[in-house]
Design a protein around this nucleic acid. Structure first.
Lengths: 136, 136
DNA sequence: GCACTGCTTGACGTTGACGTAAACGTAAAG
DNA sequence: CTTTACGTTTACGTCAACGTCAAGCAGTGC
């Protein structure tokens, strides 16, 4: 019977070491530490060592996605911090909503650029395929 | 009668100076020259001065769009050079088509990331608006 | 006890994308 | 003919995002 062995060698759901998360996300441990230096993640400390939980992995995924979209790291920080910002008072909620608006405008600009680029590229591809077909 | 005055003070369609294109595209002349140093644009020279034509402006627009999407400049160069690459021989056409494929994969990955980010952000916005409504 | 392996903290190096300052040419305006 | 407004090259500076040592701590294996 499979007992919930707590000292399993491979941590599938438990906390992770820096090497494990770095490996899993395809970045170096140096990059992970850099994100921490800039305040994008806050892993637990057990003595001197960093311990990563599911929450840190979620943030890391958001960081890397933001990076793929070309956002600078400090902007990424403000975005993901937004999700944890206090929203108890009306003024706080209104601030968060304003920030969301700005971010959305930016993202929609990017989608505009992206769609235009893809359309042009696909047009060009069609022309190339036509040329290729014309060559016999 | 409006004659085709060639010495018009504002060039609406003629060639442009570096200051004009920089102004128009919202970048510095230093940036424009930087793009030239990296081989992304090749303005004409009239003596020592740079003269920009419609072709250069088209390229500049592509450069800035690529930059907004987070592409590095040398990658942007290979992309826009692709549009001018020779496609006479079959092998050349096949190379161009392969390059197009890579670029398209990259762009579609970005669209994936972009759509996911926008969806999450809009979900979050809805929740915030609900919270705000609940506050009276 | 000691080597080995993995993690930690500095601290300096690198690359990309420009910024900035110096020093000089040039052409129209006064 | 000098001033003013742009334009040019050359060269070093800067900032972000890490890379790359160097040197030390900490549990583990024998």
């Amino acid at each position: 019977m499979p007992s919930p062995s707590p000292a399993s060698t491979r941590a599938a759901d438990g906390p992770w070491t820096i090497a494990e998360v770095a490996e899993e996300f395809g970045v170096t441990h140096r990059a992970v530490r850099h994100y921490e230096e800039l305040g994008l993640i806050h892993p637990e400390r057990r003595g001197t060592q960093r311990v990563y939980h599911r929450r840190d992995r979620t943030r890391l995924a958001l960081i890397l996605r933001g990076r793929r979209l070309g956002f600078p790291l400090d902007e990424i920080r403000t975005i993901i911090d937004l999700y944890d910002a206090p929203r108890g008072r009306r003024s706080q909620l209104e601030y968060v909503l304003a920030q969301i608006g700005e971010r959305r405008d930016d993202l929609e600009q990017k989608r505009h650029d992206l769609d235009a680029t893809l359309t042009e590229l696909e047009d060009f591809e069609s022309r190339c395929r036509a040329d290729l077909a014309a060559l016999g």
